[in-house]
Amino acid sequence: MTGLGYVVVGLVLAAMGIWGVVVLAHPLRKLLALNILGSGVFLVLVAVADRGAGQAVDPVPHALVLTGLVVAVSATALGLVLMLRSDDDRAAPSRDQSDDKGVG
């Protein structure tokens, strides 16, 4: 039952993250939302690996999540650098995206 509970929490976090990336405007918030989405996905994977007290833990999702964590932090750092740099280049303000705005 523990596992199922955390699967549900993970999926709610994932939905929240997707909502945040689409709706929030500031790139820093988008990065936070992406990290929450990632945490949600990881939580689903790890929660299902733990099938309860009697059973062994499935180590494969654990390894996947470790990989995912490192990927997430490096992409986040790159995103932050890009955000700071685009902030610097005020000459081309980020609002001037002539084509479609909206999601993303």
Binding site: G3, V8, V12, A14, A15, R51, A56, D58, V60, P61
Partner: peptide, 18 residues
């Protein structure tokens, strides 16, 4: 997502631990 998660969890797949 939650509905899919609950359904998927109920399949009770053995995973790869063995």
């Amino acid at each position: 997502l939650v509905a899919a998660g609950v359904l998927a969890y109920q399949a009770d797949s053995p995973g790869l631990q063995d």
